[in-house]
Amino acid sequence: MKNYKLIQARKTKGYTQEKLAKKLEYRKSTISNWENGYSTPKMEDAFKLAEILEKDIKDLFLNQKEQDSHTNTA
């Protein structure tokens, strides 16, 4: 399941997947996998990500049902 909140937060901050990956010292494909729901970050990486994107970690990774409803209305 896509993580639309993570995608939106990244875009709002003006980061490409590649720029965000460099900040976290990961590959672009890792960010893509997180955004597309193929994998999730380790806890420490999730906190770093939330800090970089200036979002609460709960806003990025919880409330999956809310994100699911986004796909059902689109």
Rank of each mutant, 00 (worst) to 15 (best):
T71N: 02
E66N: 06
K28F: 03
E25M: 08
D56H: 07
T12R: 07
E18P: 00
A50P: 05
L6V: 02
N33M: 10
D56C: 08
D59Y: 13
I57L: 11
L53H: 03
D45P: 02
L60Y: 04
A74R: 01
N33I: 00
M1V: 04
L53F: 07
D59Q: 11
K19G: 10
S29K: 00
R10P: 07
T40N: 13
T71G: 07
S32V: 00
H70T: 07
E18F: 06
K13P: 04
A46T: 06
I7M: 13
L60M: 11
N33R: 04
L6E: 09
M1Q: 05
K5A: 09
K22E: 15
F47C: 04
N72W: 09
T30P: 01
T40P: 01
Q67S: 09
F47W: 08
M43S: 12
N33H: 12
Y4P: 03
M1L: 06
F47T: 03
D59M: 00
S29H: 06
K28R: 15
T73M: 04
F61E: 08
Y26G: 00
L53D: 12
S29R: 03
A46S: 15
K11T: 11
L6G: 07
N33C: 15
I31M: 14
E18V: 03
R27W: 01
Y4A: 07
D59W: 08
D59N: 10
N36P: 02
S69D: 09
I31C: 14
L53T: 01
Q17W: 06
Y15W: 08
K11Y: 11
R27V: 02
M43H: 08
E54K: 06
N3Y: 02
G14M: 05
T12L: 15
A9N: 01
Y38P: 01
W34K: 00
I57P: 06
N33L: 09
E54D: 15
K11M: 14
D45H: 03
Y4G: 01
G37K: 00
D68G: 02
T40I: 13
Q64W: 03
D45L: 12
A74V: 00
A9G: 12
L24S: 14
E54S: 15
A9I: 05
W34M: 11
L49K: 00
K42Q: 14
Y15A: 03
I7A: 12
K22R: 04
T12S: 14
S29I: 09
K11C: 01
D56E: 13
I57K: 10
Q64F: 10
Q8V: 05
G14F: 10
Y38G: 12
N36F: 03
F61H: 03
E18T: 09
A50E: 10
Y38M: 06
S29E: 15
A9T: 02
K55P: 02
R27T: 08
I57E: 15
E25T: 02
A74K: 12
A74Y: 01
N72A: 09
A50T: 03
E18L: 08
D59F: 15
K48W: 05
E35T: 01
K11H: 08
K19N: 14
L6D: 09
D45M: 13
N63M: 04
E44R: 02
R10N: 06
K13W: 05
D56F: 04
Y38F: 14
E44A: 10
K19F: 05
I7F: 07
Y26C: 11
M43K: 12
R10C: 14
G37H: 01
S32L: 10
